[in-house]
Amino acid sequence: MSVFRKLKEALAAKTEAVTAKFRDGLAKTREVLAENVEALFRRTKAIDEEFFEELEEILIAADVGVKTALALVDELREAAAEQKMRDAAELKPLLVEKLVALMDEGQERAALNLNPEGLTVILFVGVNGVGKTTTIGKLAHRLKQEGKTVILAAGDTFRAGAIEQLEAWGRRVGADVIRHQAGADPAAVVYDAIQAAKSRGADVLLCDTAGRLQNKANLMEELKKIVRVIAREVPGAPHETLLVVDATTGQNALSQAKAFGEAAKVTGIVLTKLDGTAKGGIVLAIRRELGVPVKFVGLGEKPDDLVPFDAEQFVAGLFAGWLEQPDEARGEG
């Protein structure tokens, strides 16, 4: 089972703290997904159609989506027929391999694209209540720890209390917040923030925006205007446009990724609230259908709980039960 070994070796090289964070954060997801898969494999001796159908269901129950689940299982079905597999256990490493490959593809773009010379502008977009403002607070904390000077733009001028919420984060992590009154034009706030960031020689500007449902035409136009202002004021910016997605979201996240991608050229995804139950599967569907890389995941409420996404750790988190099987000699990791 070389796939598991490879995965383990890859993990051993990573810091234990982050691995543990993934493992703990995904504990609930694992319970639902991996344990179901595990039970299925234990139950099934010979591969038959019922087995594949059940596997489909398990993936769907993790929000992977019908299309993606069917495609994944179809690939497995073909491989099983081709290699004349009988024993269900033989399919296991193949499934893991496919998931890692799906998540890994194009992940070289997963690192945050920071402007090596001058100001980096990062724009945050997403529907209401996904955790944009909180994510900005956490990312600011992270960047501050890396020694960068960070400025926050209070671009959510719509939701009551949003500006104050960002200001509270600014105080907590030690970042200046550029704000206007509630109800002001968010593009104007962002414009001022860019000027402030330039004159203060800041490294990174994180722009908050109001949550908006992707089918609201006028709000998506407002977003386009913000992007235009940023692009005009800082050549090459925004360097990142991050779509924040709530991990509990179902298939609508695909529609979100498409619509925000069209309006604001999303460069990456932040998956928040991954510390609940049975979630994150939608990321597989987004990866498969749109190819947008996942850059960060939110695994808890503390400022430290925003960690860079890592495909191997993500899949390892999902299948931790498998990695610790007795037939697999445990690595030191």
């Binding site: 529907v127 139950t277 939608i282």
Partner: peptide
């Protein structure tokens, strides 16, 4: 917009608190 996890969430809140009703938000999406 909640996905498959809606059952777990609803079940947990109901078991621990005894809900009397539900409000569905963001249905204009």
């Amino acid at each position: 917009m909640t996905g498959q996890d809606a059952v777990n969430v609803a079940r947990a809140f109901h078991e621990q608190l005894g809900l009397t009703g539900v409000i569905l938000t963001k249905l204009d999406g």
